[in-house]
Amino acid sequence: MKTELLIGALALATAIQVIPFGHNHVNPPVVAEPAWDSPQTQALFNRACADCHSNETVWPWYSHIAPVSWLVVHDVEEGREHFNVSAWGVQKKNEGDDAAEEVEEDEMPPLVYLPTHPEARLTPEEKARLIAGLKATFGSEKHRH
């Protein structure tokens, strides 16, 4: 019984690799970038945020294996849709003014992202610098009204 279950699980794992979703690891061209307030803000952003919020995603090995690939591609597509620094001023929806608040409230980077991307884990000082830099670069809702 255990052998049959194992064989069935391996067959299923192999079969889902051919499902045509999660294999598109294309990075569209960078068409426009924001005027960063400093190179330090840009470096912190690139380290902690750019994989999902730019067209310069680094696709790790596990992003090529279903079903994990499905989740990774979905997260990158959703991240780019809401906030993409590689299409700044070109993309209709670009919620840069929310970026600092998302980091401040520990909503970004997502906890599920950190175990496989330890470089995205910021010290309290780096986090404070990133928040200040995001506010300086993109503004905030408080300053826009």
Rank of each mutant, 00 (worst) to 15 (best):
E125K: 10
T137Y: 09
G96C: 00
N55G: 04
M108G: 05
E102Y: 12
E56I: 15
V18D: 03
A100M: 07
C52E: 07
D37H: 09
L71E: 05
H23R: 07
H23G: 05
G79D: 03
V31M: 12
P60N: 06
I65V: 14
G133N: 01
V68A: 13
F138L: 04
A99Q: 06
I16M: 14
H25I: 01
E56N: 14
E125D: 12
T123I: 08
L130M: 08
G22A: 10
V26N: 14
L5E: 14
G133W: 00
K2E: 11
Q17A: 14
R121N: 11
S54T: 11
L122R: 06
K92R: 07
M108T: 01
V76H: 05
I19W: 13
C49R: 11
T123G: 09
A136M: 10
G139T: 02
R121F: 04
V18W: 12
D51R: 09
K92T: 10
S86R: 06
L130Y: 10
K142S: 03
V18S: 08
H143P: 00
P60G: 08
V31N: 09
A43Q: 05
C52Y: 05
E125P: 01
L10Y: 05
L111V: 13
A132G: 11
Y62D: 13
P28C: 06
E101T: 07
E141T: 12
E81Q: 06
D75S: 10
Q40D: 15
P28T: 07
T116I: 06
M108E: 03
E56F: 08
P124I: 00
S38D: 02
I131K: 02
S69E: 06
G79Y: 03
P34I: 02
L134G: 05
E77K: 15
A15C: 12
R80P: 02
E33H: 00
M108A: 09
A48T: 09
E126Q: 15
L114M: 11
A13N: 05
N27P: 00
T14K: 04
W88N: 13
A128R: 07
H53W: 13
N24M: 03
A128G: 08
L134K: 07
T3E: 09
N84F: 08
D37S: 15
L122N: 04
E95L: 15
G96E: 02
V73G: 00
A43P: 03
K93V: 13
G139S: 02
N27E: 01
Q42K: 15
R80G: 03
R129H: 10
H64G: 04
T137H: 04
F138Y: 09
L71M: 02
A50G: 05
D98T: 02
S69W: 03
P110E: 10
H82W: 14
V85H: 03
P115H: 14
D37M: 01
A99N: 04
V58D: 05
E107P: 01
P67N: 12
N24I: 05
E56S: 15
P118Y: 14
L10P: 01
A120I: 09
A120T: 11
H82M: 13
